[in-house]
């Protein structure tokens, strides 16, 4: 790799990282707190690469051929623009071992007659507790998530939890009881309903929602929880 190319490869990667961080597209890949480290890393790469790329500083020293691979992330971001993970990985991963969700730090309480807004993973946690600490029984809840399906033809309100980056994704999902037909796969919905008694406490019987109302909503900026 020529010295000017070395500079160009680093500077372009820096520019891509900076653009991902500033356009919030980085939320497809990593958690929100990574924004500042990504901006700093992008600026540092630009700073390292730009002078050699313009031929201002003659670099010595060869780099191995593998360094060419650093162009690959840039090409993929440009040409493929990978979408956030969705139904494909959720359906592949769904039959995995039961999740170990933590108790929500704040237990949401309902407010008069309005449905209780819960995250999918909060609802799954609440349904799994035999003593029903969130008193989910007979309470109307509203969940937001995207649509995934299983081979038997049921559909699910789904959330993807990431801990560090999208490669360590975990799936949480709530089965929709027979009733409303499934919206398009991967579309985001807000579904109102109640927990079906006797579901969610056993790993073999997923938490199930008897849905009364489904509304399609726009994809949120941060697609993971």
């Amino acid at each position: 790799m020529k010295p000017t190319t070395q500079g160009l490869v680093a500077a372009v990667l820096g520019a891509v990282v900076l653009r991902l961080a500033l356009t919030d597209e980085y939320l497809h890949y990593v958690q929100a707190w990574m924004k500042v480290p990504l901006v700093l890393a992008g600026l540092a790469l630009l700073g390292m690469g730009i002078r050699p790329a313009l031929g201002r500083t003659p670099l010595e020293g060869r780099v191995p051929r593998t360094s060419w691979l650093l162009l690959l992330p840039t090409l993929i971001v440009f040409a493929v623009a990978p979408p956030p993970l969705g139904a494909f990985i959720a359906e592949r991963r769904a039959p995995q071992a039961p999740s170990t969700l933590k108790a929500p730090t704040i237990r949401p309480v309902s407010d008069g007659g309005r449905p209780l807004d819960l995250a999918v993973e909060e609802f799954v946690w609440g349904a799994a507790q035999t003593d029903d600490p969130m008193s989910l029984h007979d309470r109307t809840v509203r969940l937001r998530g995207f649509v995934s399906a299983d081979k038997a033809g049921h559909w699910y309100i789904t959330a993807l939890v990431i801990y560090c980056c999208a490669a360590d994704v975990a799936v949480e999902r709530v089965k929709v009881a027979d009733g409303p037909s499934a919206p398009p796969r991967d579309s985001w919905v807000s579904a109102t309903g109640t927990l079906v008694d006797g579901t969610g406490t056993d790993a073999d019987i997923p938490a199930t929602l008897a849905v009364t109302d489904v509304v399609e909503i726009p994809t949120p900026e941060n697609p993971y929880s």
């Binding site: 990593v30 990978p82 979408p83 993970l85």
Partner: peptide, 25 residues
Amino acid sequence: VRSDSFQTWCTMFVAVVVQSTPFLV
């Protein structure tokens, strides 16, 4: 490049690179 599995691979690949870049820098 509309294939689901290829796009999923791309997302995970870019995710690992994006996550690692600040640490490597």
